[in-house]
């Protein structure tokens, strides 16, 4: 029995209960008649739960910022984001990220995550620390290309890391002219 499908029967039961009660051996049906005090309890509890949720959200915000400050100080922080624009010619499976020859991240996307990217989400899939100076960032994407063929392509970037956080966006886009995906790199200031 699908519970979601029978939710509005609460309304229905109000009717059926009234009708059935007219019959001699047909007492009221099982319409949910909650205790009178329940509404007050529910309201009071709900208020308290909402207040707690807000406090926990604020705590999470503060701890999220603290964690980032602690682990990835602004002077050395580098974050790599991934976005997908349209995605007609490429369906993303994995991304591997290498910085200065060392693999620092790899990610296997679930359909749900891939869909979130297609809708316009941008994933911060790597955050780390780098010294000032020049670094080589290489990303290798694998997935399905046109006609469901396996597709693998890399893109690279010479990253000049100065003092201050650096944000790099890897963008998978459609190159209509060649009917192929293209992989772009953008450095956000």
């Amino acid at each position: 029995m699908r519970l979601s499908a029978i939710l509005p029967i609460v309304i229905c039961c109000l009717l059926s209960g009234t009708a059935a009660a007219q019959s001699p051996a047909a007492p009221a049906t099982a319409a949910a008649a909650t205790a009178p005090a329940a509404a007050d309890d529910f309201h009071s509890l709900d208020q308290d739960v909402q207040a707690l949720k807000q406090q926990v959200l604020e705590l999470n915000r503060d701890l999220f910022v603290l964690q980032e400050d602690l682990l990835f100080p602004a002077n050395t922080q580098v974050a790599v984001f991934l976005s997908v624009d349209v995605g007609t010619f490429f369906s993303l499976d994995t991304v591997k990220l290498t910085i200065d020859g060392s693999q620092v991240a790899s990610y296997l996307y679930t359909p749900r995550e891939a869909e979130a990217l297609l809708k316009g989400g941008v994933q911060r899939f790597y955050i780390g620390n780098l010294k000032t100076g020049e670094h080589e960032v290489v990303a290798v994407f694998t997935g399905k290309g046109t006609h469901n063929r396996d597709y693998r392509q890399g893109t690279s970037l010479k990253l000049d890391k100065g003092i201050g956080a650096k944000f790099v966006e890897l963008k998978i886009s459609d190159l209509q002219r060649k009917q192929q995906p293209e992989f772009l790199v953008r450095v956000w200031e």
């Binding site: 984001f81 749900r112 995550e113 979130a116 809708k119 989400g121 941008v122 911060r124 956000w188």
Partner: peptide, 16 residues
């Protein structure tokens, strides 16, 4: 198009 990758990061979780 998002104008800030950090906002896009929020959307990434929102869309899930």
């Amino acid at each position: 198009q998002v104008q800030d990758p950090h906002y896009g990061d929020v959307l990434f979780y929102f869309y899930q």
